[in-house]
């Protein structure tokens, strides 16, 4: 088991290198720092000096991969590749194109992100499992059939609609909670209720339908028939046998996103004015702040790989067949 985990951790290295190469190619090779400078300073009426200045201020004036002017190791370290890409491995994100410390911003902003994403995630799973169990209990009846149709309808509605309609109804028409904004501490709750609610409702359609298929798949297995042959009640069969087995794919499927919860949700945070990493990313995209986008790509990849490793651990904890291999 430990050996396996070590293997997975080692495997993360080539993947992160790959991610880094992709971003490096996209941001520095396909578009040169000159292009970026032009974009920020405008294509016309820009002096070469302004461009050189812009690049120097942000450290983009070095050669890409090899600094012939450097001495010794500096031939490799005084390059964009080293300072802008490889440094990410040490979680040194550097400064944004507007001059702010990205690392500091990330540390500040990940908690509001988590404050929305985590409750949405937990409540969402609970609600979806409950609804899916209900549909599975009433399988092949009209409740099940129409439940599934309702799920499909809910899946077909755009996230944006849920948000706009929710803000309009609950925030604007009924004045139950503020439409957007954020506060620290306990006061944050009144700002979190609406985004969490909308996030959960939005996920019900696809989540319930997916879990229902998992439950039905389990219900048709031989061991369920054995349980019935023992004389157990349908509820006990569902809760003790089916749920316990179905939770393995459900939980392990869910675990992969847990680390990524720190990244927050782009549109939720933008709509509700939450100062989290999601809105941070959106702002960076809108302001074309490549340094921040680069940092977020790398951070996202790290968290995803962490999620994969946690999935493996979750599997071994949840499934005795894997645990005792």
């Amino acid at each position: 088991m430990t050996a396996y985990l070590v293997r997975r951790l080692l495997y993360a290295i080539p993947i992160l290198i790959g991610v880094n190469l992709i971003t490096f190619t996209l941001f520095f090779v396909v578009n040169t720092p000159d292009d970026m400078a032009h974009l920020h300073l405008g294509v016309k009426h820009v002096t070469p000096e302004a461009i050189v200045n812009w690049k120097r201020e942000r450290g983009y004036d070095q050669p890409l991969v090899y600094n012939a002017g450097g001495e010794g190791i500096a031939k490799l370290t005084e390059t964009i590749l080293f300072n802008k890409s490889i440094s990410l491995f040490a979680f040194r994100f550097g400064a944004s194109d507007t001059g702010r410390d990205i690392g500091y911003d990330i540390r500040q902003r990940m908690w509001p992100s988590l404050a929305i994403a985590l409750p949405t995630f937990l409540v969402g799973i609970l609600v979806n499992i409950t609804f899916a169990m209900l549909l599975a209990f009433f399988r092949a009846t009209y409740i099940d059939v129409w439940g599934v149709v309702l799920c499909v309808i809910m899946m077909s509605i755009s996230t944006l609609f849920y948000i706009i309609a929710g803000q309009y109804l609950i925030g604007k028409l009924w004045h139950l909670v503020p439409i957007s904004g954020y506060d620290t501490g306990v006061d944050a709750i009144k700002f979190l209720v609406l985004p969490v609610l909308i996030g959960v409702v939005h996920g019900i359609g696809s989540g319930t339908r997916w879990y229902r298929t998992i439950f039905l798949e389990e219900i048709n297995k031989d061991y369920v028939r054995t349980a019935r042959a023992k004389g157990l009640s349908e509820l006990r069969v569902l809760f003790r046998h089916v749920l316990q087995n179905a939770l393995i794919p459900i939980l392990t499927g869910a675990v992969v996103v847990i680390p990524s919860l720190f990244m927050g949700s782009l549109i939720m945070e933008a709509f509700f004015g939450i100062p989290g990493l999601g809105s941070y990313t959106i702002n960076a995209i809108n302001q074309q702040d490549f340094a921040v986008v680069r940092a977020m790509v790398f951070l996202g990849a790290v968290l995803y790989i962490l999620g994969l490793i946690m999935t493996d651990i979750a599997y071994t904890l949840a499934d005795p067949r894997v645990r005792f291999e």
Binding site: Y223, R225, T226, A227, H241, N245, D319
Partner: peptide
């Protein structure tokens, strides 16, 4: 039943 492999609950 016929299949002892699948007739027992694997996680209990």
């Amino acid at each position: 039943f016929q299949e002892p492999m699948t007739s027992l609950n694997p996680v209990v």
